[in-house]
Amino acid sequence: MQLKPINQQVVAVVGASSGIGRETALRFAARGAKVVVSARSKSGLDSLVDEIQRAGGEAVAIVADVADFQQVKAIADYTIEQYGRLDTWVHAAATGILAQFAQITPEEFKRVIDVNLMGQVYGAMVALPHLKREGRGALIHISSMEGVRSLPLQSPYSAAKHGVEGFIESLRVELAHEKMPISVTSIKPAVINTPFYNKVRTKLGVKPTGIPPYYEAGLVADAILYVAEHPTRDFIVGDVGRILDVLQRLSPELVDALLVAVGDLGQRTNEPKSEADPDNVFEPIEGYNKVEGDFGHLVVPSITDWLDKNPMLKWGAVTSTALGALALFNAYMSNSDDGL
């Protein structure tokens, strides 16, 4: 399967007003792609298009809520209206609620599922006919390591990301059976320093945080641009994500124990925040039209992301990671046997 060079592509980036989506749109445009950006925040999209155009890139914007199928369809229709085709669809829109499951209402849980899962389903539904007509293309779904391993206090987000993984696995096989040269990729970031934790709803009494370390949004954007040219099944972003993937395969019980120890306190800052404070679960909020979040001091480099871009070297490193995780597992089991 061969995909077009980025400078020959028309790319739709959904969830582009801030964070990963914004950085991705900027990088596609800088590489010469024609970019259609979408999100709920008009101010965020306007500032993004202006930034792209001032840098010499080409972009147009359309406001849409991904929980509404007709609005998602309008993104695809607008892309065809503007540029006549679609080559790559990147779906990054997401929201969340950090709270104990017992504190989450049915309406809140459903809304996160509608945005984080059904939005991605709708995106694939509207993009696929255009990709099939072109005879090739890429669907790039921004999932999460929470699609591999759920976290406490994020039950609706984790449920949605597990749903994304199940959906695209099924879709990928169907397209392969049709012999349709469309790449379907799951990008699975670890914790990324974006405004996500500023914008989500919290019932913790404090501003939430991801469990450190954090990684830069640019690492995810690099992965997205790579898979837009190189068909790839899965791409984990961040060293910790790869370690978590191995540990979850070896022993979910070990990961349970680790999360019992750090999963609750590790997602709380010391900064008070009320449940009544503005959030983006049902409506967009202003003031976060940027890539980076508030946790730059916790950002670390990732040294293994290049492995997925160099498959010949990947498996040796995977074996080393697995052996290290196995040693940790054995130590845990030994301590358990000793009653610690």
Rank of each mutant, 00 (worst) to 15 (best):
N7W: 01
Q9D: 01
V14D: 00
G15S: 10
G15H: 07
A16E: 00
G19M: 07
I20H: 12
G21T: 02
F28K: 10
A29S: 07
A30M: 04
V35H: 11
S38N: 02
L48N: 01
E51D: 06
Q53N: 06
A55T: 02
G56Q: 09
G57A: 09
V60W: 00
D65S: 13
D68K: 15
D68I: 15
V72M: 14
V72N: 04
I75F: 09
I75G: 08
I75H: 09
Y78I: 01
Q82A: 07
D87N: 15
F101S: 10
F101H: 09
Q103N: 13
I104D: 03
V112S: 04
V112N: 04
V115H: 04
N116K: 12
N116Q: 05
L117H: 09
L117P: 05
G119D: 03
H130R: 07
G137D: 05
H141F: 15
H141G: 07
S143G: 13
L153R: 12
Q154V: 13
Q154K: 11
Y157L: 04
A160Y: 04
G163C: 10
E169V: 15
E169K: 15
S170G: 15
R172Y: 04
L175S: 12
H177S: 09
E178I: 02
M180G: 01
V184R: 12
V184Y: 05
T194A: 05
V200G: 04
K203I: 00
K207Q: 08
Y214E: 00
E216A: 15
A221I: 01
A223C: 04
Y226I: 00
Y226D: 00
I236H: 10
D245L: 04
V246W: 07
L247N: 05
Q248F: 08
S251V: 11
D256W: 12
L259V: 07
V260M: 13
L265W: 07
R268I: 01
E271T: 10
K273D: 00
A276E: 05
D279P: 02
N280Y: 08
G287D: 02
Y288A: 01
N289C: 02
N289E: 14
E292V: 07
H297L: 03
H297M: 11
L298C: 04
V299K: 08
V300E: 03
V300I: 14
V300H: 07
D308K: 05
N310R: 13
W315K: 11
W315T: 04
G316P: 00
A317Q: 06
L323G: 00
Y332F: 15
G339V: 10
